[in-house]
Amino acid sequence: MNATKILQQGRQPMIRFLGKRSTPSKVDHTPQVHPASPSQSLPESFASYRQKAQQHGPLNQKSQFSTSHIGASPGSSLGPVEAGKGTFFDRSELPQRFQRMAWTQAEIEAIESGGASLHA
């Protein structure tokens, strides 16, 4: 029972901190533009930002249906959804050379046997 007390008495932390803890005397909390921001300017207000924001389409879009919650308007009201030129929604729409190849019977047997059928 007392073995734990003995072990804890000689314990030394493996991390050694250099110097005394100190917090900066002044921290600047003013909003700043992110260095990678394309506009290099902050929005005037959140409301003006939201007018221009995009998330799966414009956020300020008004429709004939109630937009008080997600799913209030049908998807058909958003208009047609078509892939742009050079863009595909499914792999089966790609040219033949990029489509999935059919499995051969030898490959299926190799997978089902865990590779043992290749050496038998």
Rank of each mutant, 00 (worst) to 15 (best):
P95D: 04
G84A: 11
G114P: 02
R100P: 06
W103D: 04
T23S: 07
S39Q: 08
N2M: 07
D28A: 00
L94P: 05
M14C: 06
H56K: 10
P13T: 09
P38K: 04
D90G: 02
P43F: 09
T23G: 05
R97A: 09
K5R: 13
F46Y: 15
I70K: 06
Q8E: 11
R50P: 00
Q12D: 08
S117M: 00
Y49C: 10
S25H: 12
I111Y: 10
H29M: 06
A83K: 11
V27M: 07
G57F: 14
T4S: 13
R50S: 14
K62A: 00
S113D: 03
S39M: 09
S45L: 07
Q8V: 11
G84E: 07
P13C: 08
R16E: 13
E44D: 15
Q51K: 14
D28S: 01
P74H: 11
R16C: 10
A47E: 15
I6Y: 12
Q105A: 00
A106K: 08
Q55A: 07
S73Q: 12
Q64A: 02
A120G: 05
S45Q: 07
Q55Y: 15
P80A: 11
Q54N: 09
K62Q: 04
T67Q: 06
S66W: 03
F46A: 13
A83Q: 12
K5V: 12
S117L: 01
S37L: 02
L78C: 12
Q105I: 04
R100V: 06
R11W: 13
K26F: 15
Q54G: 00
I111M: 03
V33W: 05
Q64K: 01
P43H: 11
L42V: 09
H119Q: 06
I70M: 10
H119M: 02
L59H: 02
T104A: 00
H119L: 04
Q55M: 08
A47V: 15
S22R: 14
G115D: 02
L78Q: 09
S41R: 15
I70Q: 04
G71I: 13
V81G: 03
E107Q: 14
T4Y: 15
G86A: 06
Q55I: 01
A110V: 03
T30W: 01
T67G: 00
L118M: 03
G115Q: 01
G79F: 13
S41P: 02
R91L: 07
L59D: 00
G57L: 06
H34Y: 11
A3G: 02
T4I: 14
P43E: 06
P35C: 01
P31D: 06
R16K: 10
T4A: 11
S48W: 07
Q9Y: 14
P24N: 01
S41D: 08
Q96A: 10
K52V: 04
A116W: 07
K26W: 14
P13L: 10
S39W: 10
H69Q: 10
G10D: 12
G79T: 09
S45K: 07
V33Q: 02
K85N: 05
S92T: 14
L59K: 02
I15P: 03
S92R: 15
Q32F: 00
K20Y: 15
D90N: 12
T87H: 14
G115F: 01
Q8C: 03
W103R: 08
L78R: 13
